[in-house]
Design a protein around this nucleic acid. Structure first.
Lengths: 279, 279
DNA sequence: GAACGACGTTCCTAATAGTGGAACGAAACG
DNA sequence: CGTTTCGTTCCACTATTAGGAACGTCGTTC
């Protein structure tokens, strides 16, 4: 091996990049941009309004820097400041850009009718999700008609192994995807979350056989989830339809009924995408 | 006047800021952040995938800078690169952040049922929009059941004076908002767009009286739009419900029927928000 | 009502982080 | 098989950003 410290032009040598920030992600990244985006990420559903001291604590940056980032993002129109309180919140401008990222697959538009169908049929919260970098991302949600429905937000990103959607997606994904998820580690969310690789593989096998997944409190202790894959031409899952029911609403026989409903609607969706069940 | 060149601490002097970039928007903005965001904005529904030369032309930056911005944004997970073609596109990560900006008003979740109602009743594309900085922003869309439906995308930002939604919103907004829109100038979108302030005020008066707006090709030549305000406790419009119908589908009597439908559903929505019609 | 503390804002200079021309390799083209 | 186009790397210069310090202004507290 050649010494990596050499500074020569190195015509054929791989020549390590200078920094290797975090985990060797490409060339040097623009620091300020990263900080600005990190700041935007601090605004969550639970914590939608933040001020300078709060962000200071969250990000560990000097007050001045936070202030400058905020001012910049505000003048660009991505944040709005409540004049009186001094608190900032995300603006609709971000919603615009974010929405555009969905045009790449119009799954959401296609899925609307099936979501509605499932929603009407079960009266529960129904969810359409995709797998993105090993996580489940909800791209559409129709709230249940009953008084309380599981908190599922459009745009939410969740660990695949802890949700019914995720299990349905993983069961019908390529082995590499599953290995990737397992490789990252199966972090527990509740005490019922699947955390062992073997257990996960076992469950995925069952899901593959049954065509439906279920999740009894693996993400939220009080929520029961049922999921089914939406399969495209490739034979792999392109999305998952799921339903989330608060445990108090679950009676005997409901589980089977819900599973059937989800599986049927997801099956129709798959057919619409050009999937032919006969292998 | 004291000489501004002095470097003293200037205890009480107002002391002009150094740059005044563009239009005196607050303090100095972080350049790189602005460029990164501008780059993200280049990705639109019509043009969802871009490569370095394309962005170079669009932004007028040196190739290297574009490359660095792209690499940064990619390593942060906001862009994805198609390994083969070298083209970039927006990732779902942006969808996550964007979605969070909606929690500030849960209008969208509340509006779902009314959108569905209107959609079932008319079988046409229905839209829920709000006014943001003088523009209409679509926060939810249910596509029509007929074969073709007007292209309305969630997240789209459109000029208020050129859409049925916008007219409904403006008609039930405070005078300042209307003045603001007029002050910015009424840019024509098609040859039927309202462009004169007097004409707009006239139309808004009618809309206020009738409770519904209509738009005959003011934004898209071949689309007919009908809108109605969703009014909250304040008595001002919080949102607008609208319906977009391709002209070929419009028969005699349809216009009246559609107007009635939109007005009725929007009225129910308003009531749900706590609006009492008796002033 | 004076003294304190918390927060937003401005100032200023060292030095870091970003700029952009130049050059390279690899495909795609003709 | 030259030629163009695009992605990528290099590097020296300096514009740009970082961040400590100080200031003004509200609200609280005693």
């Amino acid at each position: 091996m050649a010494p990596l410290t050499s500074r020569m032009r190195a015509p054929a040598a791989p020549s390590r990049r200078r920094h290797d920030t975090a985990r060797s992600t490409g060339p040097k990244s623009l620091k300020t941009v990263g900080e600005a985006m990190t700041l935007l990420e601090q605004f969550t559903v639970e914590r939608p309004r933040l001020n300078i001291p709060a962000l200071q604590k969250l990000m560990g940056l000097p007050k001045t820097n936070v202030y400058r980032l905020l001012s910049t993002l505000e003048s660009l129109g991505y944040l709005e400041k409540d004049r009186a309180s001094g608190y900032y919140h995300l603006s609709l401008r971000l919603y615009e850009i974010g929405s555009r990222s969905l045009v790449n697959f119009n799954l959401r538009d296609l899925g609307r009718r099936y979501l509605q169908q499932l929603n009407e049929r079960t009266e529960e919260t129904v969810i359409l999700s995709v797998l993105d970098k090993g996580d489940v991302v909800h791209i559409d949600v129709l709230p249940g008609r009953k008084r309380l429905s599981a908190t599922s937000h459009v745009g939410a990103r969740l660990p695949a192994h802890a949700t019914a959607s995720g299990l349905a997606l993983l069961a019908f994904s390529s082995p590499e995807v599953v290995d990737g998820v397992i490789g990252r580690g199966l972090a527990p969310v509740t005490e019922r979350t699947i955390t062992s690789p073997a257990a996960l593989r076992g469950v995925l096998g069952e899901v593959r056989r049954a065509g439906v997944s279920s999740n009894y409190g693996g993400r939220l202790r009080e929520v029961f989830g049922v999921g089914a894959p939406v399969i495209g031409r490739s034979g792999f899952a392109e999305a998952a339809l799921a339903i989330a029911v608060p445990l108090p609403y679950i009676g005997p026989g409901d589980e089977a009924r819900l599973k059937r409903a989800v599986a049927e609607v997801a099956g129709e969706f798959s057919k619409a995408l050009g999937y032919v069940p006969g292998r």
